[in-house]
């Protein structure tokens, strides 16, 4: 694990996830059409676009959370480090340990703060004993910038924290399984501005270790936290490139209309 981190750090521009001609169907509804995208390691990639454009749907394809929705079908090829994640041999359970996810609404389990973070390591058997687990929990809570606020009440329920703290707890919980990619589905939409600022700061720090993909409604947020941006419209990936280029010099007229507020 640590070796891998060392290796990838050498080349910050490694492609982590590669999608080619990805299609998603909900029953008869063709939700995602021909999406080609390369998600880079150690980079924050933002998916933007109007509501219902398919950006969350596509995000959920990346760790096969779509499997839990009846009638959902994915075609095309999505690979993680060159391995097709929709291959029959792939166990979604293993995939999701590598590609973690943080959701729109903070969803801490009705357990203690400690147990929330320890949940992933426990089910995946990542630690050998309690001392190691304690270390992992502390490390993750520190990475999530939550340790100082909760270190004296690790055994209290996670549901008792404030909204921003809950979302950081969920991030800590997600990084506790040592994922390679972290997917975030509008992680700040349920938070107030101060909590949003804290989470955005955290995302920026996480970039040093993970590849982060964030779906957001807010173009400002995309501009603040991401290095690369993908613009989705009606199930199509319209434009994908450097964040600065997308916001200052979009190539597609649809991107420009969206950024200037004419569609949305």
């Amino acid at each position: 694990m640590k070796d891998l981190v060392m290796e990838t750090r050498v080349d910050a521009q490694t492609v982590k996830i590669e999608a080619r001609k990805a299609q998603v169907f909900y029953g008869q509804n063709h939700a995602i059409k021909d999406v080609d995208v390369d998600i880079l390691d150690k980079t924050v990639t933002a998916f933007i676009g109007p509501s219902g454009c398919g950006k969350s749907t596509f995000l959920r394809c990346l760790n096969r959370m779509n499997d839990t929705i009846p009638g959902c079908r994915v075609e095309g090829k999505i690979t993680l480090e060159g391995e097709d994640i929709y291959d029959a041999r792939v166990d979604p359970v293993q995939l999701r340990a590598k590609v973690g996810m943080v959701f729109q609404k903070p969803n801490p389990f009705p357990k203690s703060i400690y147990d929330n973070v320890a949940y992933g390591p426990k089910i995946h058997g990542l630690t050998r004993n309690k001392a190691e687990l304690d270390e992992v929990v502390e490390a993750c809570l520190r990475k999530a910038a939550l340790w100082n606020e909760v270190k004296d009440r690790l055994q209290t329920p996670g549901t008792g924290l404030s909204g921003g703290q809950q979302q950081r707890l969920c991030i800590a919980r997600a990084i506790a399984t040592s994922p390679e990619v972290l997917l975030m589905d509008e992680p700040c939409s349920a938070l107030d501005p101060i909590a949003t600022a804290q989470v955005e700061e955290l995302i920026d720090e996480l970039r040093s270790q993970f590849s982060v993909v964030i779906v957001t409604h807010s173009m400002q947020q995309a501009a603040r936290v991401s290095q690369r941006t993908a613009f989705f419209h009606l199930g199509n990936l319209v434009e994908y490139g450097e964040t600065g280029q997308i916001f200052t010099n979009p190539r597609d007229p649809r991107t420009e209309s969206y950024i200037t507020g004419r569609i949305g």
Binding site: N63, M65, R96, N107, R173
Partner: peptide, 8 residues
């Protein structure tokens, strides 16, 4: 979702 998203 939270639990499945962690690979449970």
């Amino acid at each position: 979702d939270g639990s499945l998203g962690l690979g449970a």
